[in-house]
Nucleic acid binder design. Sequence first.
DNA 1: CGCCGATTTGAGAGCTTTCAAACTTTGTGG
DNA 2: CCACAAAGTTTGAAAGCTCTCAAATCGGCG
Lengths: 232, 232
Amino acid sequence: MPDSHFEEVRSLHLFAGMSDDSYARLMRAAYVQSFPPEVELIAEGESADFLHILVSGAVDLYAEWNGRRTSMATVRPVSTFILAATIRDAPYLMSAVTMEKSRIVMIPSQDVRQVFDEDGDFARAVVVELATCYRSVVKAQKNLKLRTAQERLANFLLRQQQRAGGAAEFDLPFEKRRLASLLGMTPENLSRTLRALQAYGVLVDGARVRIGDQQDLERFARPSPLIDDPAS
Amino acid sequence: MPDSHFEEVRSLHLFAGMSDDSYARLMRAAYVQSFPPEVELIAEGESADFLHILVSGAVDLYAEWNGRRTSMATVRPVSTFILAATIRDAPYLMSAVTMEKSRIVMIPSQDVRQVFDEDGDFARAVVVELATCYRSVVKAQKNLKLRTAQERLANFLLRQQQRAGGAAEFDLPFEKRRLASLLGMTPENLSRTLRALQAYGVLVDGARVRIGDQQDLERFARPSPLIDDPAS
DNA sequence: CGCCGATTTGAGAGCTTTCAAACTTTGTGG
DNA sequence: CCACAAAGTTTGAAAGCTCTCAAATCGGCG
């Protein structure tokens, strides 16, 4: 593996606190791979043979049932995904597909479990990572069950605006069809709902969004740290 | 704390593997408390001062936003709840209320974090517990996003039937209003949807449910281990 | 330019919610 | 033990929201 990735991954919270020894063991059989867009990395139901770490690019986690499909989350660098399945040695609950050209570090699951069994520091880091993932899914579920589609969209836009440094204008980070799926609606409905938010000063042109009156949109969206804060 | 609870809690997967020493430290400041039904144990947004372990009874985890309320999960003995907030030393994301008379062991969060920092075995057990919780929320989210209300209800009934040992008749485990909220619908809609499942041989009388033709209901519900299996 | 996929728009159907009222169940006090 | 009150459940009607299907439009790329 190139040194640059080696160091980049090392600096992740998950690996930062462990001994050089354990880290070396973890990386011994690990390798980096580059993928073009739209490549299926893992499929729901398969056994979790590798822990994946996204170094660059973007990955969509989705799930399917009975012919339907929904986006569950978007993974951005640098972060791991599907840690829980690796630890539990259980089947993946979600599929993963690259959204763009992506570089991914893959560590054999059995190495992760072995180091996990031997290195308490690593085990503790895994806990913190998992607790964070757990809390973020709980937030996603609250978002789904407590808010209407319009409210979810409004809050999503406000979060995007924050990510854009508070600018009044910014671009949507991915296709609208994927956004619709993430928010739990159809593309058609997203289109209409975006339009409905004009009433709160939202203007959309293609992927470009302009938030005319943040206060007004916030009054409608009522963002809450217990649902919308990415960390915590 | 009474010895009976002491042993019962000790036998939980979360505590089974740790040293007597660590366990004693964890339990030093812990105490058991009995609560009548409908008691608010913790409120969303509060800081996580105690890890809770339900020894007997039942607890509803719910969340609120903007005046709306939804049930997120039901906790059954013997299990812990809100472990992630304790570990992260972060605010609770959900509120908890007793559904029946319940006995609950409360361990100060700082003790949990301290033992967690010192005892690798405990840290590893926490990981397994958290990974399981994480996976169960992911399943709940797939259930919500991929299935219609009717399908969620049908699968819920099949799961209940399993819990009842496969009997054709069984009782719903809690009030219908709570079930409706768990499944993400209104009580009125649950009532109508139960009726709609007559088409697949489901008969309801009060809390009593009779599944006339399991095969038929399964053909409609299409249960999947990646959504409906409680463990794994 | 012309094709292909993504997005938008329209219309209609279907599902879910809301509101109101009737009915049932549960628990309490007389 | 009965009557009553309070809460939970069911039913009906209407409104609102979301989905589906179909067609039109937009946008990027060869």
